[in-house]
Design a protein around this nucleic acid. Structure first.
Length: 273
DNA sequence: CGCCAGGCTTCTA
DNA sequence: TAGAAGCATGGC
């Protein structure tokens, strides 16, 4: 099953034979920061303003307390980028990377949350970033059943660096506040970023203090649904140098961000130098 | 203890 | 205009 379908069973929504959905590889690989593993094969997180517990049971994946309507309205778009992965396998190197960890999925998160999360991820590690974000949500996020939503730009824009001190964001605090203000003042519009030519979308995000190419690209890919956007970190630079000196195949460019996810993971696991 | 984190801004030649 | 230095902080 490469695109998601399932059925409501009792109180839950069940994805049948969801072999290509590795929860740990997807939720704990540094693309999202609000999921925590609660049991062997079970994760809990707040995304899109809602608490979700999701767990694997044999070949199935169960979304606890989710009905059909909510699945299609909220979670399918969040978890599912469709059949893009299969076509990548036309290239031998891409096939190798995809088959190495076929259960990784690229998430389509909330745009603002992704932007803010990747601003905070800079020169940081995943574990600490999660802690900082959790604290930020408790500090300024709206209370929802089971925890706190990610704070809206409006709620952050009226705070100061001192207000954010408990989250221990360090030098990133001022960046977050500028990003929040940029959205409130409509200097930056993420809906517009979804439609603009890629270079213009990046340029717009990079006007935010503390947002460079990498953070802009991550926000676009993981939060704005720009699967054509390829974040270039140290690992991807090595991948391109070693395996794609002339760039990704032309036909793969429009889904380059998806390719990136598999190549990144593969390169890192191989310890590519 | 040091070293490092899926960078960015600022300073320097 | 490229390349190096500082940045805040805590996980390991």
């Amino acid at each position: 099953m490469d695109y998601m379908a399932g059925e409501a069973v009792g109180e839950n929504y069940v994805l049948k034979e969801a072999r290509h959905f590795d929860l740990a590889a997807t939720l704990d690989c540094g693309q999202a920061f609000r999921w925590e593993q609660v049991e062997e094969d079970s994760f809990r997180g707040i995304a899109l303003g809602r608490l979700l517990e999701i767990r694997r049971k044999g070949e199935d994946v169960i979304l606890c307390g989710v009905g059909e309507e909510e699945f299609y309205a909220r979670w399918k778009p969040y978890f599912d980028y469709g059949k893009l992965k299969q076509s990548l396998r036309r290239n031998p190197m891409l096939r190798q990377a995809v088959d190495f960890a076929p259960g990784i999925r690229v998430l389509r998160q909330d745009g603002w949350e992704a932007l803010c999360s990747f601003i905070m991820s800079q020169n940081n590690n995943i574990a600490r970033n999660k802690g900082m974000i959790d604290c930020l949500c408790r500090l300024a996020g709206e209370k929802v059943p089971g925890g706190y939503a990610f704070p809206t730009p409006e709620r952050l824009a009226c705070l100061t660096v001192e207000d954010l001190a408990p989250a221990r964001c360090g030098f990133r605090a001022k960046y977050i506040l500028d990003a929040a203000k940029a959205l409130c003042e409509k200097r930056v519009c993420l809906d517009q970023a979804a439609r603009l030519p890629l270079p213009e979308a990046r340029e717009m995000l990079m006007k935010i203090y503390g947002v460079g190419p990498k953070v802009a690209d991550c926000a676009l890919l993981y939060g704005v649904g720009r699967v054509d956007c390829v974040p270039m970190d140290v690992w991807m630079k090595r991948v391109m140098e070693r395996w794609f000196p002339d760039g990704l195949p032309k036909w793969a460019e429009e889904t380059g961000g998806i390719a990136q996810q598999y190549l990144f993971h593969y390169a890192r696991m191989q310890g590519l130098k």
